[in-house]
Amino acid sequence: MKSLKNHLSLVIALFTILFTIQTFVIVNKAITAYEEELKSNYSIVVVSMKKMDIEKFQKLDNSITKMSQIEPDNVLKKLEQDLKKKDIALIKLTLPKFYKLELSIYPTPDQIKSISKNIRRDSSVKRVVDFAKNHDKVYKLLLLFKSVTLVFAFSIFAVTSLLILKEMRIWQFKHTERMAIMALFGAPVWLRSAVLFRLAIVDAIVSSLLVSTTFLILSTDGWINAELKNIGIEIEVFAIFQDGALLFAVAFALSIALASMIVLGHKEEV
């Protein structure tokens, strides 16, 4: 019971931090998946007076991955009845070139502005149609959600860090006497602090296991997946090895940092 109490406060604090981190990871995954879907449907249309190629466009902006020329044939077909073939060929020659550009990313509204500006740097480009006004509302909502989650995560992190700091002081108080006695008998620093590090590592393992289990249960439960499918997103809510390792690494780093602070801050008292 006493041992459980020793662990509980740090485990709860670490659990809160890890839960927030994993929530942020899920939001990020959802946005990335949605971006992928939007990216395949998004393109920019460029009107140029000269012939362009993909290298030229990539020099203007390196997020451009694919270029295809839009042939004006469909438009000219409508004119075939009223104009001679010779005139149509002449028009075709004087018409500007139309290009459809695909990007490596799904751009944010700011990125769209920047890409358009970059393309316009070429003097032969007469017009860039970026469809910024049609930018996806769900995506904007997701970006807003991501920002809110990030702010929320930082707030949680700040508050929980204060809790950990308090816990650290209690640990320091609890262990100072033991460490001082061990020092009197010539125990090296690593041996004096072994208990603290063991406690820290155990708490890191316990808290990351608890959070992993929670998200595993949530990922197998249909509710989250159904909600995400509703907005066209399919993601792995919790990737055992990848996310589990990330959670453990964060918990481990935090708790070891905590134990190290205690050890470094410890002054021998006799």
Binding site: E177, I181, F185, A187
Partner: peptide, 24 residues
């Protein structure tokens, strides 16, 4: 140095008025 001090203390036996036992 702390290394030498640890070595020395490993060869000393110290007894205090307030015992200095580890309660846990």
């Amino acid at each position: 140095t702390s290394k030498k001090l640890n070595f020395l203390r490993q060869h000393l036996g110290i007894v205090f008025q307030d015992y200095k036992l580890i309660k846990e």
